[in-house]
Design a protein around this nucleic acid. Structure first.
Lengths: 180, 180
DNA sequence: ATGTGAAAAACTTTCGAAAGTATGGCGATA
DNA sequence: TATCGCCATACTTTCGAAAGTTTTTCACAT
């Protein structure tokens, strides 16, 4: 490839916040920081809490079906890469993303949904880092099921509580590990 | 200029949502629609309401000063372009943006602030369109002062109410005008 | 008149090189 | 030894053209 398409790709990453750019100084991987992570998780919890509440209010049985379906396929996949423990299981990552998307998909606001998507992409770097460190000690599968069940039972406060603690747990672990 | 920097600029506009891109079909101005405007205003009111409440809670006297300063310079400028009525007064537009930024600047979340900035950019096309149609009938200056005063008096509910109706009024006018 | 398909035209994307800009090294000077 | 300025080098950005893709045109057959 020549530089043109590479620059184009980098420009997109700058837009998401994963990469930073400075004129005549090129592109850099956006730095990770505790402050960034805090902002990220707080904002994400706030946005997705709203979106989940809306989805629970708006969603029909088709939505319930999509939530259950995405949970089902997620539960059937191992989080670890079967071939190489040091690599991620990209299939699981994709399903995981799909599951969280399904939950909030009926919130009724494309802009909010796009923002949540963006926040998820930003958070993924931290989550994957946490995955390496804690080595899958936490039982994410149980948490996912709890969120889905509460959502389908239209218990918004319980669903939001489950979702929030799901997001906060990973961040908390990282923040404490790197507290120094 | 050659195509490279133009494409780079377009890529940025795609990121904000002002321009859409399709592979091998180039770039297009993102279409305007009633549904988009509704989503935009609702999301914006929700985000800025939260951000304003936080700012009112966090902001110190320096923040109050910045809000008053930006209101002051805004009030000293005419909204219309003195040279040509059919053009915008870009100086006023800049100050207007600064004023709304100052209000929410102490919300404590860079991500939320960036999202609000993005929403403002998206909304600007509709607001400017509304400006042409209603020809400055509404008294925006009064509304701005009401928001600023309530914010500085730390009256969050009143400030949020003033800000929300400020945003909703413009959108409502457009939606009714194009109701057909 | 209507539809089909090939050729031409217009447009989008990618390329390799040129131009422009920052960085690091080195010698001269204080 | 430290500082400054210059030059060489490495890197970033921009350029004009080539390659690739979509759209339009037009002749031809139905």
């Amino acid at each position: 490839m020549s530089v043109s398409p590479v620059r184009e790709a980098l420009a997109r990453l700058v837009a998401t916040g994963l990469v930073t750019a400075e004129h005549n100084l090129g592109y850099r991987v956006a730095p990770l920081s505790a402050d960034d992570l805090k902002d990220l998780v707080d904002t994400r919890v706030r946005e997705e809490a709203w979106a989940l509440r809306q989805s629970i209010g708006n969603g029909d049985e088709m939505w319930e079906g999509r939530v259950l379906a995405s949970l089902h396929v997620l539960e059937r996949l191992p989080r670890e890469n079967p071939d190489d423990q040091t690599l991620y299981n990209e299939a699981w990552e994709k399903r995981h993303s799909d599951f969280h998307h399904a939950l909030i998909s009926e919130c009724g606001s494309k802009l909010t949904l796009a923002f949540c998507e963006n926040l998820r992409d930003l958070n993924d770097r931290y989550r994957r880092l946490s995955l390496v460190l804690e080595g899958g000690a936490r039982n994410a599968a149980t948490e996912h099921r709890a969120i889905a069940v509460a959502a389908i039972e239209r218990d918004a406060p319980r669903a939001i509580e489950a979702l929030s603690s799901h997001y906060l747990a990973t961040a908390q672990y990282l923040l404490e590990t790197y507290a120094e």
